[in-house]
Design a protein around this nucleic acid. Structure first.
Length: 568
RNA sequence: CGGGAAGUAGCGCAGCUUGGUUAGCGCGCCUGCUUUGGGAGCAGGAGGCCGCGGGUUCGAAUCCCGCCUUCCCGACCA
């Protein structure tokens, strides 16, 4: 490509809407432009990178036996009612992306489990046709409450999504492992360091699943990882080990519990402040959170006052209407003592606490003091119900865990029968002649997001530094003094032809601008190899070849360049 | 959805407090000349619904009200 023709405008100044360095560079170097919040156009350079990332994904998934298909962006609303996800996404998310068409309502797909299941169900009748894994690379639409950080969190973005169909659980696990292995190779080729972590399945459903996290400062996610055994889990799924029992109820010397007036203290901090004269701190208060568990059963989660409660997957916090229908539970003064008909679960760490606690009295403006766990209330269940923090103990080996800020680059799920049991006719005839449901898996890579991650992780003060595997061009040919030196033009033109003939993806900077501009743009855009042809070098029969990443520069004979070679 | 900030030329900004000539500056763009190995110089030029609507006023980029959009923090999140 001749740069004089390339649709690119580099910006010298920092765009006002860009916060992260990586995104700033993508904008300054002319890869992307914002159309609306969370909606971006990819200009030619950005498009080329995206295409190269997609090509790698295609190659590795094809090699793994996965087959590419193209499913529609639009899907009938009825399909989402069938799977139950119309209700799950709720009043806001799906309708916001719904289009009224002739003859029905169609959803702009946020993901494609329903469509994939329907598609495969129509094509596969027999176990003999299994296993099969299909994938597509396509736009997805999500009603993000808050798009952010450029390409990191978009309302419309490109995703590579794959769906596996198997005859039984063992086969599903095998397909899952195959897909995960393909993902690992993809990230290797992209030169992106990913950490597979255990995760929660969110709105997708299913049991076993992993996220591929990229540790980076622009991450909006956290995962906990063990410093010793390597266990890693998303913050939403991570649990901790509570070490050594410390005491039990019988050894605590506390008077029987009593009510105390605590007007207007709807928070742990307020209670601690009010009762500080009694030596009460946030750690001696129990935080009681009213929730509905995955089955809709009212459940109080009890955790130490200084910790954040972790809601297991599928649970949700009480809303106004829930408090209204459970009058015994008083917002701001929830407690585990004396509640009948309400399940209480507690974090393991309070089980053997060596002291009494302050808890909500389930009465407005009152708390209970001198509450002893095991004496005054007995949780129905103990578990790990706090959000893991830096320094907590690994549930596996007990070593210290650390939190890592990161971006979710991919997510893989073993769905089991989650969708095939809901979508009609998602079954096949098994070897024994019986009708069986598909065992499914689904897999997604956030392709657009990878550009943001790459830009953030691969740059220096001068600009972007693309890995060769995805760089928009392999090399940039810079002609110095082309406007006044016919020999430079002649040589550079010939080199451009020769390099292309040799299979080098080359960007030829033939613009009539100063050398400084050409060098600065070459660095900003981040093409891995820069070839400089100038009058001074021509006099000596050489040109310069420089590595963007290392700055290393070698001189090679003009003849080598004209033969399409970039080394001596 | 809660909190904060901001909308003035393609991009980045000043002007607004204290209303009043023709709304400025830098980058970019166009023309000419000079220049040419790390974002050149001189001269000339084009480009504005001052986010939108209403109000106050003789007069509004500037004051008041409403709305929209964008960014940040949080909530939420596949």
């Amino acid at each position: 490509m001749r740069m004089s023709q390339l649709l690119v405008r580099t910006l010298r100044e920092i765009p006002s809407d860009a916060e992260s360095v990586g995104h700033t560079l993508l904008v300054r170097a002319g890869f992307v432009r914002r159309l609306a919040s969370g909606i971006y156009t990819l200009l030619p350079l950005g498009t080329r990178v995206l295409a190269k990332v997609e090509a790698i994904i295609r190659e590795e998934q094809d090699a793994a036996g996965m087959q590419e298909i193209v499913m529609p962006v639009l899907s009938p609303y009825e399909l989402w009612e069938e799977s139950g996800r119309a209700a799950m996404f709720g009043q806001d998310a799906l309708p916001a992306m719904t289009t009224e068409g002739r003859g029905g309502v169609f959803v702009l797909g946020p993901t494609h489990e329903e469509v994939a299941t329907t598609t495969i169900a129509a094509e596969i009748d027999s176990y003999r046709q299994l296993p099969v894994t299909v994938y597509q690379i396509q736009s997805k639409f999500r009603d993000e409450a808050r798009p952010r950080s450029g390409l990191l969190r978009l309302r419309e973005f490109t995703m590579s999504d794959a769906y596996s169909f198997d005859a039984n659980k063992e086969a599903m696990v095998a397909s899952y492992d195959t897909a995960v292995a393909a993902y690992r190779r993809i990230f290797e080729r992209l030169e992106i360091d990913v950490v597979p972590v255990e995760a929660t399945s969110g709105a997708i459903g299913g049991d076993v699943n992993h996220e591929f996290m990229v540790p980076t400062t622009i991450g909006e996610d956290f995962f906990a990882s063990c410093s010793s055994c390597g266990l890693a889990a998303n913050i939403e799924a991570a649990v901790r080990r509570v070490n050594s029992p410390l005491a039990d109820a019988t050894t605590i010397n506390a008077p029987s519990c009593s009510r105390i007036s605590t007007p207007g203290t709807g928070s742990i901090e307020a209670v601690a402040a009010l009762l500080s004269s009694r030596g009460v701190t946030t750690t001696s208060i129990l935080k009681s959170i009213a929730t509905l568990d995955a089955d809709g059963t009212p459940t109080i989660i009890v955790v130490p006052g200084d910790r954040e409660a972790r809601l297991p997957h599928g649970w949700r916090l009480f809303e106004e209407t829930d408090f209204a229908s459970h009058p015994a539970i008083i917002r701001g003064f929830v407690g585990p003592v004396g509640l009948s008909g309400v399940r209480v679960v507690a974090d393991e760490s309070i089980r053997h606490a060596p002291h009494s606690f302050v808890v909500g009295a389930n009465e407005a403006d009152y708390h209970l003091i001198d509450v002893v766990v095991g004496r005054d209330f007995d949780p129905d269940e103990y578990g790990s119900f706090v959000v893991v923090d830096d320094g907590d103990s690994c549930p596996n080996c007990g070593a210290v865990m650390h939190l890592q800020r990161s971006v979710e680059a991919a997510h893989t799920f073993q769905l089991g029968l989650h969708y095939s049991s809901k979508i009609r006719n998602a079954s096949f005839v098994a070897e024994d002649g019986s009708e069986q449901l598909f065992w499914m898996g689904c897999y997604g890579i956030g392709v657009s997001r990878l550009l943001a991650v790459l830009a953030e992780e691969k740059h220096d003060d001068q600009g972007l530094i693309w890995p060769a595997s995805v760089a928009p061009y392999h090399a940039v040919l810079v002609a110095i003094g082309a406007g006044r030196n016919p020999l430079v033009v002649e040589t550079a033109d010939s080199a451009y032809v020769a390099l292309r003939a040799a299979g080098v993806d080359v960007l030829y900077d033939d613009r009539d601008v100063s050398p400084g501009v050409k060098f600065a743009d070459a660095d900003l855009i981040g093409v891995p190899t820069r070839i400089t042809v100038g009058g001074k070098g021509l006099d000596r029969g050489i040109c310069e070849v420089r590595s963007r990443a290392t700055g290393e520069m070698v001189e090679i004979p003009i003849e080598a360049l004209l033969a399409g070679r970039l080394s001596i």
